[in-house]
Every structure is written in structure tokens, then in C-alpha cells.
Amino acid sequence: MISSGRKYLTAGLLSWQDCLAYRANAAIWALVDGCGSMVMALIWLSVFRDRGEIGGYSLNQMITYYLVASAVSLLTTPHMEYNIIWEIRQGLLSGYLTRPADRYTMHIVSETVWQVMKFLMFLPSYLVVCWFLRRYIIITLTPLNLLFFCSAVLLAYLINCGMKMLLGSVAFWVTETRGLFQVLECLWGLLSGEILPLSLLPIWLTVIGGFLPFKYVVWFPTELFLDRVPVQEAVLGLGLQVCWAVVLLVVSRLVWMRGLAVYEGVGG
């Protein structure tokens, strides 16, 4: 058990080396992913000018919402689905399957490392923006809140990993998946709360979103940070997050195994 853990640790360190070589690329992707939220925060800034609150958010809350949401979204959104389809399409997977390391786990490990790299490259520009907007940032974190927030972020990452692995596994059956990815990414943006706080969305969208895991990856952690969630609801939300994470990881794992069987059956 321990030795197999070390195997993935070593693999993680190796991908860190790889990431270092591509840090310019990481910076670009961080900017591409994070820039939209910053711009939207600025738009709110101009809109609020003469208003005390909009949709239950004060100006400070709104600005903080976007700043936190962008960081959470960047940190918890891996993109291994593209790596998976690449490996399957190029037939690289066959080579990896002969190695004594589980490819499913490896995808999560190496993508996690890449996430950290991307976040580090994002940090400088993020901090500059935060410094300029420092007047509007409110931090009312109690230790309990902080604990809630951190666990929520971690769980959000696991939920996302499950979703992305599931999405990537589709490539075992469907050859052209990029269009699908694009559509889902769009829904993700809207229903996760990255574009707007979910409470501002039209009611019917909020209702639909309630049945989906998306709201737990950005909106929920961010609201926890803003201290806008009562303790009871927070605990309930964390519980639901755990459920989603477990369900998605298990389902994606099953689908992955099923897909592998298909892949090996065809002969890759």
C-alpha cells in the first residue's frame, strides 16, 4: 500500500518537473481562465456606484464574491478530459496500460500537479488585482468558516475530478467529443456560479441547478467564504458535496473500467 502510494508521489514529482518546463503555458491558461471573472467584478464595480445592494449583495460582497469565485474555480477545475481523449485517440493509452500504475489515478495525480502550477502562475496577477480592489474585499472568516471553506474547496475538486474523468471516458465510445466538452463547459460556467451568484439567476435555472452538482464547485465554497451560509445549511451542503464526490468518482471509475474493456477489446 505504502509503496504504491510512493509510486504516485514519484509520478507527481515527475509531472511537477514537466510543469516547470511549461510554466509559461501555465501562466497563459491561468490568465485565460481567470480573466473573465476579474472583468465581471469590474463591471459590477461600475454598476453599483449609487446603489447599496443588488440582489441581496452589497458592493463589497459582490466584489469579494468574484475574486474568491475566480480563485476557487481556477483551483478546482482540472482539464484532464482533454488529456484522456488525446491518449485514446493517439493510441498512447495502450503503452501506459502495460505499466504497473493505474492510469485513472495517474490522470488525477498529474492533473493535480498541473493545477497547483497553474494556480501559482495565476497568483501574481491575481494579487495585483486584489491589491487594487483591496478596499472592497471583506474577510469575515471565523476558524469554523475557514475549516468549512477549505473542506468545501477540497470536495469541490473531487467532484470536478469525478465529472471530468466521466467526461473523458466518453471518448472510449465517441470519437468527436470536443463539441460536447464545449457545451458542458458553458453550462458549467453558468450553473456553478462563476458568471453570476446563483441567487441572481432566473428562478427556473436555479431550480434546475439544484439537482446538479455544478453549484457545489464554485458557488457553495464562495458563499461559505462570504459567511452567507448558516451553520446548519453549511453542514448539510458539505454532506451533499461528499455524496456527489463519492457518486461521481465511483461512477466515473466504473465507466472508465467499462471503457477500458471496450478499448482493449478493439485492440486500441
Partner: peptide, 8 residues
């Protein structure tokens, strides 16, 4: 791919 992208 074409229609997926168009829709997205």
C-alpha cells in the same frame, strides 16, 4: 464537432 461547436 462542427455542430457541437456551433451549439456551444
Amino acid at each position: 464537432h462542427f455542430w457541437g461547436n456551433t451549439f456551444a
